[in-house]
Simulated assay, not measured.
Amino acid sequence: MRFLLDEHLPTGLATLISELGSDALHVKTEGLLSASDGDLWTLAAKLDATVVSKDSDFLAMAQRDGRRAGLVHLNLGNISNRELYMAVRASWPQVMEKLLSGEPVVELRP
């Protein structure tokens, strides 16, 4: 499964997701920092990628779109990168299970 990470997330998170066994791209390393949320959503669809973001604007896009696996929403508040990496690492097996079972939106909460 492929993931496209939003600009508000650290690039190291893409590395972590790759280490966990998935293909992960970050908008910064793809040269897309100035792209709008809508453009990123469209690109993710073209790449057959699931968006990973803390931005709640993507929730509305995911609900309208209906793609099988559209969004991993990191609803974790303001936490350090270390805490973010720990939360993602701990919950990633469940995230993948939900996405693979067809849930279009998976939300991580504290």
Rank of each mutant, 00 (worst) to 15 (best):
M1D: 03
L5D: 06
L5K: 05
D6H: 00
H8A: 14
L9S: 00
L9C: 07
L9G: 04
T15L: 08
T15R: 04
I17C: 02
D23S: 09
L25N: 06
K28C: 14
K28E: 14
E30S: 04
G31E: 03
S36A: 02
D37H: 05
G38E: 15
L40A: 06
K46L: 06
L47R: 11
D48H: 15
D48P: 10
S53C: 08
K54Q: 08
D55K: 12
D55M: 06
S56R: 12
S56K: 13
D57E: 05
D57G: 04
L59D: 06
A60N: 06
A60I: 07
M61L: 11
A62Y: 11
R64M: 08
R64N: 10
D65L: 08
R67L: 05
R68D: 13
R68L: 11
A69E: 14
G70Q: 01
L71R: 04
V72H: 00
H73A: 02
L74V: 10
L74N: 07
N75R: 09
N75H: 11
G77L: 08
N81C: 10
R82D: 10
E83F: 12
E83R: 13
L84S: 04
L84M: 01
M86E: 14
R89T: 10
A90Q: 12
W92L: 01
W92Y: 04
W92K: 08
Q94Y: 11
V95T: 04
E97W: 00
K98D: 13
L99F: 00
P104S: 09
V105R: 07
L108E: 01
R109T: 11
P110I: 02
